[in-house]
Design a protein around this nucleic acid. Sequence first.
RNA 1: GCGGGGAUGCCGGAGCGGUCAAACGGGCUAGGCUUAGGACCUAGUGGCUUAGUGCCUACGAGAGUUCAAAUCUUUCUCCCCGCACCA
Length: 846
Amino acid sequence: MVYNFKKIEKKWQKEWEKSKIFEVKEDSKKKKYYVLDMFPYPSGEGLHIGHAFTFSLGDIYARFKRMQGYNVLYPVGYDSLGLPAENAAIKAKEHPLDYTKRSMKNFMKQEKAMGWSYDWSRVVASHDPEFYKWDQWIFLKMFEKGIAYRKKAPVNWCRKCDTVLANEQVTDGKCWRHEDTDVEIKHLEQWFFKITDYADELLEGLDKIDWPDNAKKRQRNWIGKSHGVEIDFEINNEKWGIFTTRPDTIYGVTFMVVSAQHARLDELVTDEKKKDVDKFLKKLKSVSEKELGDMEKEGVFTGSYAINPVNGEKIPVYAGNFVLADYGSGMVMAVPAHDQRDFEFAKKYSIPIKVVINPAEYDLDADKISRAYTADGRLINSSDPRKSKISGATKSKTAPTRRDGEDFDGFDNWNSREAIEGISDFLEKKKFGKRVVQFKLRDWLISRQRYWGTPIPIIYCDDCGIVPVSEKDLPIELPKNVKFGKGNPLETNKKFVEVKCPKCGGKGRRETDTMDTFANSSWYYLRYADPKNSKKIFDEKKANYWAPIDQYIGGPEHITMHLIYVRFYTKFLRDLGLLKFDEPALKYFTQGIVHAADGSRMSKSKGNIIEPLDMIKKYGADTLRLALVSFASPDKDTNWDEKIVLGNHKFLNKVWDYFSDLKNINGKVDLKVESKLNKTIKEVTGYVDKFKHNLAIIRLRELFDCFDKIDKKTAEKFLIMLHVYCPFITEELWNKIGNKGFISQAKWPKFDEKKIDEKFEKAEKESDGLVGDINNLLRIMEEKKQKVEKVYVYVLPNEVDNYFAEELSKRSHTEVVVYSVADKDKYDPEGKSKKAKPGKPGIYLE
RNA sequence: GCGGGGAUGCCGGAGCGGUCAAACGGGCUAGGCUUAGGACCUAGUGGCUUAGUGCCUACGAGAGUUCAAAUCUUUCUCCCCGCACCA
């Protein structure tokens, strides 16, 4: 019988839809399990192979947990707001709303074709005002708590997107969506979320969750906590704080560098240097951010001098292109002898280099070193010359001692590591500075000057200033009637923009910026718990029943964006008292990326895209699913190869043929098969749980290969295990072999350790060995041109059951006779039976 | 520069201290089955050897730990990825 996958897959899609078996309710008696794939953006192109892969992983897991008896929430939705949709719509000369609706419909159709077992009653879409209303609600709460705030800041601007970007959306100085477009820096007033308030918690929370190490490390790196000291340097009779992690080098500071973008740079520039500085700044503006990264360290003297608090030295202040304006205080103390960047700068501008740390083995010579010495060592030149004069400090070479108070005379001979602490103590004691913690993480810039996003619920009033929209007026809906072209389309709708001030009733102007699309994906997982609630963002009982996500699945590209934001939102909503947990996802699986056959990225421009739909048409969704996850370990990157699909299709054909013939499953329980079955259940259960689907499928194939005539229970258990990978064909066969209902609702099989008997496997191995031996002998005889008619095998009496003449004959293509060594009537003209050893029967050829 | 991952047979990929010449798939070879088959079944697929044996060489390169290493340590080479002037 032909395996008509098209018919079968269509049939079961309908059956599942009709029966609604994947819809779930809260059930206090059942243990819940929440499986979630990352919120997809519904592109007009439909599903790509990456979707097919990652969502299949989710579906496999959801089906697995469901069969194991959990109350499984496995929802789907659409991250339908956002720049890509707007851009695609403009390109197609279509309204984003129409484009989005069409894309979503197309997506749903394809998702159903893949056999993903979503609870379709819970679909959410972020472009739905009933959804983004709650974005706005959260915004208002954040505004209330001071988490959402407005400030002027140097921001990343993409000309092509026509909007600002978050730091996370800039890669190599280029826009994350336009690899060919350099990001420009503009100074604009923008909305920010104060994610940095949660920096410490975001860091510590990582210890509590079961995520891949790699993901955790990347987040830690991104958050970038470092301990250091903020030291006050006096410039023009005013104190300027600078951040350093190396207070041990403070005696080696020979100049200061302030960021060229520093807001208060003007105050440092003296009149006679103004021209120079302006020239320098102008030059910087003409280069893009990207080139700035590659550029040599450059700077210009501002004319001002700073006083080093520890030794009273007067040092020049430069403006430089390599100092970040928004990290630390935007100014650094430069120690050329012990920092490579400072070293290069000092060399370029002939600034003195002062060694204050020597390696253990030798002394550095400031005039001769070719690069900064950044390792640990022993401090020199690290005392206050003003004090030394008074006290006539002895230059002892003895072990350093900790000095307190007035008799302090420096840190010479201290170990630099200890000096970090010692000098920090000293600075704090003298009130020259204080210990501080710095993060690389910046506040999240969420303003976007584009149309297809959540409107920010704020009104500007000349009299009242920034006024939040009141909660009862939510949602602020996106007007459909806008003109696309230059600038923010929302500004073209007067009715939207011109509003009354909610406070004074006077003339107000509505904020036309929309929110970053990542806002939506930061809390959508909670809305699934209660998707239709029109009164509240979600019912807290429901949210706390289903959430947090037990198993989250998605690509590595989201580790530093979405996965940070969603953690931040979760903590914020917890602080509002809505959630009883701190982390959105307890477990996270990062799948590998499927590349094109040649290892390059799949992209439309390269024309190397594999369409899942094509594969479904050619081989069926079951085959595609099986192929995608059996190819390699799912956490590894792979290169696509259609041969894999072909091989899996063959396998499913065999499965189909085998189970279609009911005679095959009318057999009796066979101990050998039973042992193998139980062992397979044991292993496959473990593999599925750990996403090692490639290995699980191998085990299933091996089990299938050992089937001859089997009993119905065995058949069922095999089908159930295969079902998580191939839901359609197994559903059909489940019915075919006489079961009512859905295999989707069957119970995952349990294994019985007692039924696993390694002797069968051993016997099988020995039997394989014997076949090998026989064939080997036959080959040798053939080479010697000796004809062999019959093969006689002499088996030790206790092993007689392990060898079957029929099987051996078949596999060696020669008639085989099996004797027990103990058989008195055996035919054994050359006494080969004496050679029989355990697991190794004697052989005689004739 | 920092951080992560990788290098295994003709190929994709398992294995991560002994049970490894190395799962499973693909390819190829031989045979069978067939009107035919790119379908299916069986066997083989590092080298040398042999009535079923045994030996040698192999898991990017070198060194080491160990009774024992593809598997552990270390150095090196190459590849991929993430962050990147974070003081």
